[in-house]
Design a protein around this nucleic acid. Structure first.
Lengths: 240, 240
DNA sequence: TGGGAAGCTTGAACACGTTCTAAACTCCTG
DNA sequence: CAGGAGTTTAGAACGTGTTCAAGCTTCCCA
């Protein structure tokens, strides 16, 4: 059996600290706990930024956060849970994404993809560590790995494409979304293990998105998608 | 820097022991080494089969293989490299796959997919451990994770589909293959972390394959593929 | 056929994630 | 304010993957 934190607060495990703070009265004891949680996440983020995953030891983290070694285990349960908490706490996406507006519903999917990838490769040391945690299979800390708001955003994009008639109505949008995500995951995995350059990463992801969307597209929209497949294919052909 | 084994035999690292044995003269020292390598892989396979990854400790493995703790590190470099070696050593695929022959080139791709999945879910304790190693990002042991023969087999299937005209000639077969593999990887990942039942696993993979192939298909072949997409979609609709 | 040199094995050791115990501390309740 | 419940703390300890210095075995060349 995989165990969560040992305290009495399992129900809020994994929520970002601000979300906890937002939920009202919060006895003084709980407030102290939330504060410690915040310190730990903060220290973890700093350590990852400075040294990557290699420099993130539980002893060092505890020292940096000003708590004892056992405390992070009481509050989060495991090292991985802490990294996941850091991942969930990244909410800059929301702001960036809110500014993107495209007339073409398919265009906005590709724009969001580009934005995401720019985000990740723009801070490699940081996001390599975070994505490594995503691919970690060692324990059962999985629920809500990716920001729920972020998921909702993507789902909105796909549903928009369906509504606009770009995607055939017979295709299940959630399955389509899932396959798109699997392309992203796959590409990010290659990036994490260093098997793909940032340049190819973008082209590869776009190619996969275009191919899957082409499979799901309504007839009228197949032309531009096919063009996009060929275009990304060409950009991938140059460097062997 | 990630280091491989420290000995002078980096060039044969990762090759299966039988492949090493096949390369002739083999001084007495090399023979002993190959023998030890074989014993270690054998012991690892047995331990994984008996207890899963949890029971596979380096000390236990060394004891079982009748060598000292440091020896596996000298011969393989890391624990992960040993699991990868076990993975490469599984060559039953070849035999099973050689028996599959379908007239329809797309049909044979789906048949191969089913065969693969049956293989994995048929021995969950074993293959969950092995696939976990595939998703492990902790070190740089990556080259040729999957059996090269297996890759060649899949590539042959895709190229066959292209030659037969089922796949549009403008689509790059290698990119197509890669996206198909990313669907498989993604689905296997969900299986490893326990987020998908064996039943849904197959349907999900087929759906992804069908969608991608539909995107890449020549016009004449889009009908049956679209039917397959809808069919797998229906089978996924039942259990929420 | 010896002797030097390489390479391998070995047991000890390190750093890590994680858990445990007991003591100290902090907060809530009456 | 007193008591008691709930948490953090320090410290030690366990098992893990991995590495190191030292000794032993095997090879190769004179």
């Amino acid at each position: 059996m995989v165990c969560g934190p040992r305290g009495a607060d399992q129900e809020i495990t994994g929520l970002s600290p601000t979300a906890v703070l937002a939920t009202q009265p919060l006895s003084r004891r709980e407030a102290g706990k939330a504060e410690r949680r915040r310190q730990i996440i903060q220290a973890a983020r700093d350590l990852i930024r400075e040294t990557g995953n290699a420099g993130l030891s539980m002893r060092g983290l505890a020292a940096r956060a000003g708590v004892s070694l056992a405390t992070p285990y009481n509050l989060f349960g495991s090292k991985r849970a802490i990294v996941v908490a850091v991942l969930q706490d990244v909410r800059e996406f929301q702001e960036r994404f809110s500014t993107l507006q495209a007339v073409d519903p398919l265009e906005s999917i590709f724009a969001a993809l580009d934005l995401s990838l720019q985000f990740y490769v723009g801070d490699p040391a940081f996001y390599r560590t975070l994505w490594s945690a995503v691919f970690d299979t060692s324990d059962g800390v999985r629920g809500e790995i990716l920001n729920p708001k972020r998921d909702a955003f993507w789902r909105g994009l796909v549903l928009g494409a369906v509504r606009s008639g770009a995607i055939a109505s017979e295709v299940d949008p959630d399955l389509l979304l899932r396959h798109l995500e699997s392309v992203l995951r796959s590409v990010m995995f290659d990036w994490v293990v260093g098997e793909i350059s940032p340049a190819r990463l973008g082209a590869m992801a776009r190619h996969g998105y275009a191919l899957i969307l082409l499979g799901a597209a309504a007839d009228d929209w197949r032309g531009p998608l096919r063009a996009r497949v060929l275009e990304t294919q060409a950009s991938l052909a140059a460097p062997a």
